[in-house]
């Protein structure tokens, strides 16, 4: 097991380097120069050159990327051009907000999708099943930012229950978490339903029923547990989606997290900040997927046994 974890961790290194390479080069290739935004309109060419040197933007793209990567390998993610502060500390400052939003949205997604998926599977081809399918399709196809604006309109403007935006307390978290969670719930409901359908007609469940085990117990202890592996797999990627979805949702709800920071960095051509944020996102996502893989072992003894060998 330890060897597997170490191997996965080592595999992350080339992935992360590739990500920095792609993001750094794409940011450089995109038209627009950060210096033209930082320099005053009446700056002389000498002042522009002075700024370029100050921000380490002189030299060819290869030289600049080389310098960036060298610093990164030494644990220095650089300084944001616009915020003029170390990227890592800016990232850490806003990370708790994004994590809070991501986990809250996962919680919302689980609370919606697990009962709905199970109910749809146990009442296969009933109106409840149809309702769950329609609801999942709706949540998957509805743009999250639109749902966000709709929720603001209903809960904030019309009913005045929650604030429309900000990130200063739990009550500010509810609408963005609900939006992001609803978006994630669609996929999770479909996976829960189909995994449950796969196991619900297995022989061992019939045996359990024949032995007089109550239907609730059959579902909870025998069916759900066996259906959990695909659900956990999707949960891992759902967390990744939640980080991605946070980009739009944080902007709509003025939630002060990494997503909004990344949007600002890209809009302002803040290369070090954008690359740093995406690098950290990738790292977090990889770590999450690793944790999910490890979690398999605890859910499914067969997987654990394979790792043990």
């Amino acid at each position: 097991m330890t060897r597997y974890i170490v191997r996965r961790l080592l595999l992350m290194i080339p992935v992360l380097i590739c990500v920095t390479f792609v993001v750094y080069f794409l940011m450089d290739l995109a038209p627009g120069d950060v210096i033209s935004q930082l320099a005053p309109a009446d700056a002389t060419p000498q002042q522009i050159e002075m700024l370029r040197e100050e921000y380490g933007l002189n030299g060819t793209i290869i030289e600049r990327y080389g310098r960036y990567l060298w610093r990164l390998l030494h644990g220095d993610m650089g300084t944001s051009f616009f915020l003029k502060r170390p990227v890592f500390s800016v990232f850490l400052e806003r990370l708790p907000n994004t994590l809070m939003l991501a986990f809250a949205s996962i919680l919302v997604a689980i609370l919606i999708s697990l009962p709905l998926g199970i109910a749809a599977a146990t009442h296969h081809r009933s109106w409840l099943d149809g309702f769950s399918v329609v609801l999942s399709m709706l949540s998957v196809s509805m743009p999250a930012f639109w749902l966000g604006l709709l929720l603001i309109f209903i809960f904030s403007l019309h009913w005045k229950i929650f604030p429309s935006g900000g990130s200063e307390g739990l009550k500010y978290l509810i609408l963005p978490a609900l939006t992001l969670g609803t978006e994630q719930a669609g996929n999770l409901t479909r996976i829960t339903r189909s995994s449950m359908l796969d196991v619900i007609h297995q022989d061992y469940l019939r045996t359990a029923r024949a032995k007089g085990v109550s239907e609730k117990k059959v579902i909870r202890h025998h069916a759900l547990r066996n259906a959990l592996i695909p659900i956990i797999t999707v949960l891992g990627s759902t967390l990744g989606n939640a980080f991605g979805g946070a980009v739009a949702i944080e902007t709509v709800f003025a939630w002060n997290g990494i997503g909004r920071l990344t949007v600002m960095a890209i809009n302002n051509r803040d290369m070090t900040l954008a690359t740093g944020c995406i690098f950290m996102f990738t790292l977090m996502l990889n770590m999450t997927l690793l944790v999910v893989d490890i979690a398999y072992a605890y859910v499914d003894p067969r997987v654990k046994a394979r790792y043990s060998k």
Binding site: K160, E168, G169, L170, I174
Partner: peptide
Amino acid sequence: AACGSSGSGSSGAATGSAPAADAPAA
């Protein structure tokens, strides 16, 4: 319910001073 009121109590900077007459119900 606590979520609904905690923000207004703890985040005076942003909402605590909203006028009572037409402040959001939150």
